[in-house]
Nucleic acid binder design. Sequence first.
DNA 1: CTCAGATTTCCTGCTT
DNA 2: TAAGCAGGAAATCTGA
Length: 386
Amino acid sequence: MSATCELSSILTKANHAMYQISDPGQPAGSLSLGDSKDSLQLLTSAQLPAELLGPCKWYNTDPQFWSKQNVLEWISYHVEETKFDASTLNMAYCTLEGSVLCQMSRDTMLSMFGPLGDRLYHSLQDLKAKNSVDDITNDILNTLFTDLPEIFAEDTYNLLPTVVVAPGPGCGTDFSKPTSRDVQSELKMMGELPSWSDLGYESGPTSPDSLDSSSAGMQNFPSSPDSGGSDSELDFSEMRLPSATDSYQEPGRAELKPGKRGRGRPRKLSRGAEDCMDTKKSKHAPRGTHLWEFIRDILIHPELNNGLMKWEDRREGVFKFLKSEAVAQLWGQKKKNSSMTYEKLSRAMRYYYKREILERVDGRRLVYKFGKNSSGWKVGEVGLGM
DNA sequence: CTCAGATTTCCTGCTT
DNA sequence: TAAGCAGGAAATCTGA
């Protein structure tokens, strides 16, 4: 069932124009990140159907024709894959045109991207070859996604490398050293889209305990300057606001491994027909997925958050939830927990008071304030990334 | 295996 | 009355 629901999740993504679904807490267009045409063009809900059923754009495009954004996404993907410290990258190098990139020697790339350069170079060569030679893989993948979606069910991920790599040379991305993990994640990525998380947001811890505002990944992509690759980054590709048709996707805990339960206190049964709910719980809910960072990242991208939240006093770090439930749903999607509610989210927020990541704002509903142990939201900190 | 950290979930009571 | 807010308590998961 888990597999089925996972599949459902994938297909649902494909079938619904994510944020266009009318939702009480989420008017159409909300969070349609693609609005920011000039900034990093995030893969959005609107793009989902087509994108989701096929490999991501850079993967399918001859690197020669990559836009800066494609380059950024591509680099980000590898940053994440290798858990490379994105903060060491010069962002100027990450926004080159693909054509420029293609003319670079391996040494040049090494000098530009450091240890990541080698991987990038090989990936680039592979992609150049691939996109000039065949589309077999794409066809296969499309077939898999459209005709044999169940193959992407959780337990069958392991089969993918075999299935897809089989076509041989030219079939792929960075398969030069096709470790199982590489291949799987690559494929998985193609299925789930690269997005903010693929843009390097998961490359480093950013909890207040581990970073201060002056450090850590200040050059990370569009979002938080200091995310350093926080997993808290808005991974909108994975996020979509729920619609009435999504109930079956409710993850709940019904399908955890035998003997394992979902996170948190056991939920009381009574939520109606939530039984088919399940997307697998993230097996490794990554550290660094901090709620406050997630919130912060929504806030520092006003062009993207589209009315979910707003600054009340940017300088002071005071912000307000405008669509509290929608934010909670997004958070829930990020954590693969569609039963997330604002109530729960707010409880977690309140825990931040003690840690001084947030400060109380008395008497104002839905209003919070960043505390001294938070970072990355201040005007001076934001925007350094690019 | 233990432990700490970070939630998640539930609950009660209070406030707006 | 509903929606939020405050916290306590319990439980889980992950990483160290």
